[in-house]
Design a protein around this nucleic acid. Structure first.
Lengths: 337, 337
DNA sequence: TTGTAGGCGTTATCAT
DNA sequence: ATGATAACGCCTACAA
């Protein structure tokens, strides 16, 4: 059943039906009503594929991340999703793509979206499209919105990691802590991005401003940001510096929760002996005892803003790139009491 | 840049290029190599839309759920995702759709997928497509795989909720508990599905088999399955029956965590005074103290199996519907000690 | 092995 | 207000 079948049933041509379907041109109320009735009766929906071929546009907004299953990612996605419906603009579908952590799949995905003209705008979370893909996006005029990363030629929305870290560490220092440790991800590598580095920068500034001095024995590096690594990190830190009285876990809450669990096993009191602040504000942070203080990423706002920018670009074809920086928020809970 | 431009550059016709792109017909190694080189050099990818129009198929697998941001949903999705790449079949993209809890958006989404021929198979999580949509899916031959729900004419994969509940409650009874309460979702309503009902059924059977008797004062109903509701549920239960010595929270772990937190506030010792078993095994369940015993939903397997069935159907056009039932697993942690 | 011609279901243009 | 015709970019019998 296609547009021509409907036309035949209504005694008009497919052109008329198409116009009605798209609210284009002028159609008499009468035929409009008649055709619409037939469309509804037959439960007819036009072929998305054909419509896209004809329009030369994909009609969807693509969301690309390294995987689906992460509280962080799905929160961002929820922000995108909500604003996509909130604005009443849900004629544009939201399609999600995951690169499964493989750089090969990543390249493939971007090229497919760009060259295959699948989407009208692409929102990318914590990933960098390669050069070829960016060229292609530019050529096809598909706007790219980078979340948590930055490239020239693309819009970006990033979290101010320096300031988030600074606030957290300043709070620890302000409550009298003298030996503030930091646990962070690997730095210096192009692949991992600037996040760990920025957080360390904020940490160092806060430590210095508080009149303390950064000490390499107070630095611990993790790779996967896991709960398990958090447990090990605490052991390592204590082995190197027994005076450690507080920890800023820039590697995220999951890792911080590992630290907490290990501390409790060792009979270390939180926050009396060691106070802890994490990063992200994952749901579990508020469920554990004591509650985990943390730097809350404005994930929801991130997604919301991204969608708005995507729509703006897709519709107005604005060509100037925008770089938005959002400030994260320090949330104090008992672990940093 | 389209298939004809590539052809021109290579000195062949677009037909040849198409054949090469799709590995169809016989092409000399030489021209193949030449054309492929030009394709790569120009970073050419065929238009997905046109290809779909032409083929009359969507070329993607659709995943529809009520929202994205839930640990449960994203775990299922991860299962789907992993097997989609694991089988090396990632030429088929995975597109996700969310209905935002709105039945209107739900209907719209399904009709768009079905009638717009967007997908070659649809995986639906805990949602029921309406009659019209099912008819359309049948007509277009798009297989539907229902997860956690069941309809005639569609494949389904469900969790054996009765047995999961039975195991949990039997464990509580086996450890000497005499007043076992249940917290479950609303039942009897078509919209909410059979899950709460099935879990209560398992609960009742276990209670009876243990020589105890079910008592309405030991039943508490929640609506949203939230942490907050769990807190209230405990208060309500204790108000009605002070002897409550254990709780099976069929309404999920999040709710069970609420119960635990409230219990700790009230100075009730877990598991000594009251032991608790939840349902789902969300990540936080193993992070809290004491660890939350729970019935682990085989979410990952659910997703995996769903994808496999989707592919089987999409490729072999099998028409017999299959109903798979997966048994959940009881995970004992300290809260049920 | 390669090319010609027609079809997929839309939308867009330009008459009528 | 409506319709005839072409265009979108791809796929694929079938003919060469």
């Amino acid at each position: 059943m296609n547009i021509r079948d409907i036309a035949k049933l209504a005694g008009v041509t497919h052109t008329t039906v198409s116009k009605i379907l798209n609210n284009k041109g002028s159609i008499s109320e009468e035929t409009k009503k008649k055709v619409l009735a037939i469309i509804k009766k037959n439960n007819f929906y036009p072929s998305e594929a054909a419509r896209r071929t004809s329009l030369g546009r994909g009609g969807e907004i693509a969301f690309v991340s390294s995987k689906y299953a992460s509280p962080f990612i799905s929160m961002v996605l929820e922000g995108v999703e909500n604003s996509s419906y909130g604005t009443g603009k849900y004629e544009k579908m939201l399609s999600t793509y995951s690169t499964r952590g493989s750089s090969e799949i990543k390249d493939e995905t971007f090229m497919k979206i760009a060259s295959g003209r699948l989407a009208d705008a692409v929102i990318v979370l914590a990933l960098k499209p390669n050069e070829d893909a960016m060229k292609e996006f530019k050529k096809t005029g598909i706007p790219v919105i980078l979340l948590e990363s930055r490239m020239k030629g693309a819009d970006s929305i990033t979290v101010d990691n320096v300031s988030g870290a600074y606030d957290a560490v300043s709070y620890l220092a302000g409550s009298g802590r003298k030996h503030i440790a930091i646990i962070r991800g690997v730095t210096g590598n192009e692949e991992v991005g600037p996040v760990p580095h920025d957080r360390e920068k904020g940490y160092k500034k806060a430590v210095t401003d508080a009149g303390l001095k950064a000490d390499n024995n107070l630095l611990e590096e993790v790779i996967e940001y896991t709960f398990e690594e958090g447990r090990e990190a605490l052991d390592n830190l204590l082995a190197r510096n027994k005076k450690t009285d507080s920890i800023f876990c820039a590697a995220g809450d999951m890792c911080a929760l590992g630290v907490m669990q290990r501390a409790q096993e060792l009979g270390i009191k939180i926050p009396q002996d060691i106070s802890i602040i994490g990063f992200d504000d994952i749901p579990a942070a508020s469920l554990v005892k004591p509650g985990l203080a943390t730097v809350k990423q404005p994930v929801y706002e991130l997604g919301k803003k991204a969608f708005e920018m995507a729509i703006d670009h897709a519709e107005n074809r604005l060509l100037d790139t925008v770089n938005v920086v959002i400030k994260p928020e320090l949330i104090i809970r008992a672990s940093a009491g």
